[in-house]
């Protein structure tokens, strides 16, 4: 399947290309594992952790580079960055709940409202 036609067929939501969203979601799953999975394995040596994390990061970069390459042009750099931050925030919160067993609280919902507002603002203007 051609990437360009896949990009076209997935369409948009609130001005955000859904192909980009999917690619960033996949990439952030790997990124959050590469960054924080080692927090529960403090006894492992730091060099080993760096190389294992880097190995996991290959999959992160496959999705991230493909997504941003397809979208760049109609999406500007700050738009790419802010969408990436929203998705990495979601990934981190879910990861902290599932893997690090941290508690969630209602204040986080307000934070997410602000972050989503910033994404909608930078993609669509006021």
């Amino acid at each position: 399947m051609d990437l360009q036609s896949l990009y076209q067929s997935m369409g948009y939501f609130m001005g955000v290309p859904l192909f980009l969203v999917c690619a960033l979601v996949l990439s952030n799953v790997f990124m959050v594992i590469a960054w924080y999975a080692h927090l529960r394995h403090k006894q492992v040596g730091i060099r080993k952790i760096i190389f294992i994390s880097w190995g996991i990061a290959l999959f992160e970069y496959i999705f991230h580079v493909t997504g941003s390459r397809m979208a760049y042009g109609e999406v500007t750099l700050p738009q790419l960055k802010i969408l990436q931050e929203l998705i990495s925030l979601c990934a981190f919160v879910i990861f902290a709940r599932l893997y690090l067993k941290e508690k969630m609280h209602p204040q986080q919902a307000f934070g997410f409202v602000l972050v989503i507002a910033s994404v909608v603002f930078i993609y669509n203007g006021v």
Partner: peptide, 26 residues
């Protein structure tokens, strides 16, 4: 690239939101 005022507003909004998400309940 020059940063526009619009970018600045959404970055600040993003940082405020991220602070609320990560901080313990105020």
């Amino acid at each position: 690239q020059n940063m526009s005022f619009k970018d600045l507003i959404s970055y600040l909004c993003l940082l405020a939101g991220a602070y609320l998400v990560f901080s313990p309940p105020i």
